[in-house]
Design a protein around this nucleic acid. Sequence first.
RNA 1: AGAUCCGUAGCUCAGCCUGGUUAGAGCACUACACUGAUAAUGUAGGGGUCACCAGUUCAAAUCUGGUCGGGUCUACCA
Length: 1121
Amino acid sequence: MAASYREYQQLNLPSIEAEILTKWAEYQAFEKSVSLREGATPFVFYEGPPSANGMPGIHHVISRTLKDLVCRYKTMKGYQVKRKGGWDTHGLPIELGVEKELGITKEDIGKTISVEEYNQKCRQAVLRFKDKWDDLTNKMGYWVDLNDPYITFENNYIETLWWCLKRLYEKGLLYKSVSIQPYSPAAGTGLSSHELNQPGTYKDVKDTSVVAMFKAVRDDKSRFLFDAAGDEEVFFMAWTTTPWTLPSNLGLTAGPKIDYVLVRTFNPYTHLPVSVVLAKALVAKYFKAEGENADFADYSAESKLLPWKTLSEFKGSDLEGCRYEQLLPFDANTAQRAGGDPFRVLNDTFVTTEDGTGIVHTAPAFGADDYKVGRKYNIGILTLVDREGKFVDGLGEFSKRFVKNYKDDPAYVDVNVDISVKLKKENRAFKVEKYEHSYPHCWRTDKPVLYYPLDAWFIKTTAIKDRMVQLNKTINWKPKATGEGRFGNWLENMVDWNLSRSRFWGTPLPIWRTEDGSEEKCIGSINELNTEIRKANEVLGGDINKHYLHDGILDLHKPYVDEVILVSASGKPMRREPDLIDVWFDSGAMPYAQWGLNQEKLAAGDERPFNAPFDQNFPADFIAEGVDQTRGWFYTLHALGALLYDSVAYKTVVSNGLVLDRNGNKMSKRLGNVVDPFKTIETFGADATRWYLITNASPWDSLKFDLEGIREVQRKFFGTLYNTYQFFALYANVDKFSFSEKYIPLDQRPEIDRWILSSLNTLVKEATAAFDDYEPTIAGRLVEDFVDEHLSNWYVRLCRRRFWKGEYEHDKICAYQTLYECLETISRLIAPVSPFFADWLFGNLNSVSNRFTEGSVHHVLYPEVNTSVIDPALEERMQLAQDASSLVLSLRKKVNIKVRQPLQRVLVPVLNSSMQTQLQKVEDLIKSEVNVKEVQYLTDADGFIKKKIKPNFQALGKRLGNKMKAVTSAINAFTQAEIATLEKEGSYSLEIDSEPLILQIHEVEITSEDVPGWMVSSKGPLTVALDVTVTPELEQEGNARELVNRIQKIRKDNGYDLTDRILVKLSKAGTLADSIKQFGHYIKAEVLADKLELVEELEEGTAIEVNEQAIKVWVDKATRS
RNA sequence: AGAUCCGUAGCUCAGCCUGGUUAGAGCACUACACUGAUAAUGUAGGGGUCACCAGUUCAAAUCUGGUCGGGUCUACCA
């Protein structure tokens, strides 16, 4: 007995998926999908490592679906796609999690808990949710190799990072420098940008702001100011919201292209006459319009209005180099102590005229921009605040005072206010006010952060900026704009990469330094370190490194590496620089570190001393992550690829957008609008979820996630496809179709079969193009449209009878082969996006036909288009048939004649012979679909058609330009005769604005509009007219059909099998009797009745109504003969 | 603050690159119909200042500039 296609009660995606998962596990389907392609061209994919210390969310499902579908697609295209998994295990989120769990803060580490214990905790916490992640990976059908993942905390991984760092060090790209970083005095620690981006860190606060007046020094540079001011005192005005930085002021920065003015006025506090410099654009902020050129002599302390007068105007560049007197001189902040040449006006483009005065008070220690411009001009640096947040000694009355209330001291007096008061008194303040702005706070202590100079190690990415920009242009970005815009701009504005992190659980910086910093050494491997360890012991003697002499170092983390002391060339001890490196370096170096160092290659001085798979796996063909990784992983991969090997690290990158909730809000635990991926998958199935995520919006658009959308996908796409399969299986099992007959050549198949196969091949072509272009959304939507509109609602609907009527012979086999081929091809087309359902469908089909030897759809090749099957004319005329049917149905609706009532004819005006030929070929389909007996074609000759003419704007517009309006109205006024002439001659002469103009036939569109005296309906060039006369003859046939429908329903209600023969008795009733007599044969054939009897009286049986006539029907199974 | 994406029907999205005269589809809603595969489908109906303003053009949802709103990233500044 031949195998049969599996049939189901109803679609249940989750149970299908459970079944397929079991099958995959048993057959090791994933492993096989890779091993089957051994020797094939590799397609290199990098997995961006997730951090398993948090639960996976629905947004992980979208990026992983994207990764998975590309890898599956490429596998089906014949590539070998290895997917090594990985785990990101270092970094702040993990440390913060552990601290929270232990209820400690950073300060406790090394005190209440040893670094060793702490890191042990981190190591344990890192993979806490690994099971959950593995579970999700499995359930969502993400194929990735989790058996041999790279793990960033492992020694061999860190060792490779060290090697990379050393290579950078040797190229002179790794350096130490002071940088201005966010720092929390209350917590005593620097903050990472990540910490600063915690929700709620930016708060609106009211600070005392002051516009300070810096007195210009008269010299050659500033002469133009004093000349204009008539030798009065001249001040530069600069605004600050942090008056505590004023003692550390060393410069004033102006924008070179900004316009400035010198204004004569009075100091509103001291009422002394002054001349001040500020940006022209900001004058209105400090001076009222009415005060301009007001009477200066009238001004007194009581005056409401401040008179002012513009004395001169100049550019910021004119101010460059002007000197000023120090605002708040003390012992501690002399120019000498600052080093450099301070108290000058500088120029930089970061200055804006949005706020303040257009002149920026510059304290290099307390602002990144200040620092940068300060260095450029060598104005030195003063850090007059210590790490606790209080002023140092030597600042007079301000010494030792906290610059902000870091200690929650109830008696705290705001030093910023005192500074402002002092300035007011000294004629050095122009305006003091409370200013509300958003300012970052330490998320842990809730105290304001300050920017503070800290030592840090940098990678000199700026050295190869141009090269990185150049390389970026070769990367295929999806979407393009992210690469050119967001990423491109980011590269253009690149700064050196600050690697340092003052944390505990991470990759230690492998640099050892002598105490005076004069000698240092960068270590590039474990062997090298062990050698150095022994050497140091030999040179320095004693107990130095005694724990590491025997076995070498066993763990490259803190605190162990910090215990190691090395020896410099000159014999001095060296200690490790205490920093850890940015975790982004960990992930950015994964192309190299995932394979680890190869000791032989290393010893041989290989440029690429990584284990062998590396050679085949760099750079990646494809990576994909969320768009939030643009400046994260995408950047670090790119930077390291360029820095280390002058290469891109990936050729194509897809950045997917955010997943928002259904109202467009970002999902966050705080808002409680997160979607649980497990629950979603369990409820709707991974395939429906994946399909929804991919087809609803382009991956890079942000997605408003709505469960209703998944439900719709489930119903509409999978439901339809499932039903189509179910339909096929039902009849194929009856007929024992197993594709054992020879493949019937297309020219021996009916039109509709050739049509659906043509459409199918068009679909294959277009879907493949879309996948090749990393546009899965387009591919998915194409398949959806095909399944719904073409396959299910046209092909199957029209062909239904072919499957259950008649014998198992040529036409039926054609139908089975065609539908089978469609289903099988669809299963392969959708396999990348919905891997479970595809494999289920494929498996169900293939287990009967055995057309493929492969056990899984994921092992076969993606369908190849057969262009010889594509017949555009055929697809076009089928469209005509669909349109014509739709128009006729619409007309039937208008006159309320149901489809079951046959009608005699439709008239179709044809404008040319090719249209008629096209229609004739699909005439039968139209007739059966709309239940009419004949199609008549009307041509001009019949004189029935009324035509409509419309200009072809596209063609005419180019030629005529601004004459279009006149021509349009001329054309609209055409008579039927004129249209006829144009059609006959192929051109027509017009006169527009008394100029002759020859109109060509292709410059207009002529459609038939009307058939006088008939009901018509049209769509584009197609018009149909319907003969709505119902003759008695037609009515009888209609009755018969109606009756068939009722009997079929009874059959179904009685639960008969499709093939059961029946006996029917009908009560004689009115005019129906005639119908029954006349169409008895037809009725019997339709309902598989052996006997159809008309009886006078029927006791039992079902009472039904046929076209408002009551009748009784009695149905019973015929006994088998 | 800079960059970037988005804004079309109640909702989700096409169309925009390459301008062309009734702006489409699905969902939802209403009514009718179809069905021995269908949780499907068909027909009809309501529902749109294509965010706004200006410009270019004979012609703008489409091109240009700006504004507004939303998202994201980066930065945080006197």
